[in-house]
Design a protein around this nucleic acid. Structure first.
Lengths: 189, 189
DNA sequence: TTTGCTTTTTACCATTTGTTAAATGATCGC
DNA sequence: GCGATCATTTAACAAATGGTAAAAAGCAAA
């Protein structure tokens, strides 16, 4: 639980009473490898906070190919932000890539934090903005780089991931086929 | 000025006194084609609102190539959000691609809005979140699509841009060379 | 119009990536 | 351990894209 509070306090100041309230709303939760935290076609009902494990955001394109948009490795919120807040059905999946330890907040409890803690909205906005900026900063350069460069920067950004997750996920994140990725990995050695 | 207030009111309710305050802070401003609204190496000092014209976000990679990250066409805020709010030097450029009519707010005036108008921060956060979601939703699919598909979705998303801006910008946005883009354009006809 | 400059197109060849298929490795339940 | 299944690698060929250079087209100033 300390991980959560430490994380939040990096984005704003809260007193003990406030952090206790937050902690009281967080429920321990475990997700097994391959299970979904949020699914396309369903309204996201929870906010997650990853204590340990890897998640990925993914969707299917019109050719039925699975595209990985993003990975989350360890300490971080995991949430389909827009869809959760507007309570609209999601269009992408959030899947556990490994067994995951997490904390979850129900929509009701999360709303209560917003209504009870002065400044909570601002903290939440800051956290979201940091995550989005990070996501777009990682994702954007991929468009103009060749596959080898993309793979190298993937390793740099997610150094702990390569040997823990299926390479097919990495390939779909990099926008190349598994075969290409395999070839690239061979040439780098 | 009506465009600005209409735009803002889509994200929250404000009374006349509040919208008048906002309007009083906005200064008319014109930027000529090719001029920069914000530059790498400088701290962003202004928030812009585009009334008419096209902007692009761009930067230089380590090979000296110019990469276009994003276009803004008409009615929208234009701002290097993170760098403006943290008052840190920017790492990318925001350039007028055509002559532009805009409104600008100084950092001082923008902060004053935040301190004076209750709920302003929440509205600003909503606007930012919408823009970021839009940006990432447009940018992300580009990674896994081939160049022709990327060009077609560019035309779809920015239908008014193709014949108003240099194709070199489009190519750098799509992550391909001008020659490839030219070839693709020929094959589509 | 002409001139000079920039943008866009074209062509040729090298390189990268995709496609298909098969072989090898790894994992899981029996 | 054994077979079944899934993940990964390898190979050969096809298709797409990049690099370079040069020609063509567009544009603006004299």
């Amino acid at each position: 639980m300390k991980e959560l509070i430490d994380y939040i306090l990096r984005f704003g100041n809260l007193n003990k009473q406030q952090t206790d309230l937050i902690a009281s709303k967080a429920k321990k939760f475990e997700l097994k490898k391959d299970e979904y935290f949020s699914e396309a076609g369903k309204i996201p009902k929870q906010v997650g906070f990853v204590l340990d494990g890897v998640f990925r955001f993914c969707y299917f394109n019109n050719k039925g190919e699975e595209i990985t948009n993003y990975f989350i490795d360890g300490i971080s919120f995991v949430i389909d932000y827009q869809k959760f807040h507007s309570q609209v059905i999601a269009s992408e999946y959030i899947q556990a890539v490994t067994d995951c330890d997490m904390l979850i907040f129900s929509k009701k409890d999360w709303d209560e934090l917003s209504n009870t803690i002065v400044g909570w909205d601002k903290i939440e906005a800051k956290i979201y903005q940091k995550c989005m900026t990070e996501a777009i900063d990682r994702r954007s350069p991929l468009v103009s780089e060749d596959a080898t460069t993309r793979y190298l920067s993937f390793i740099e950004k997610f150094p702990n991931l390569v040997n823990r997750i299926p390479l097919s996920y990495v390939a779909s994140y990099l926008g190349i086929t598994q075969q290409s990725l395999s070839r690239i990995r061979k040439n780098i050695r």
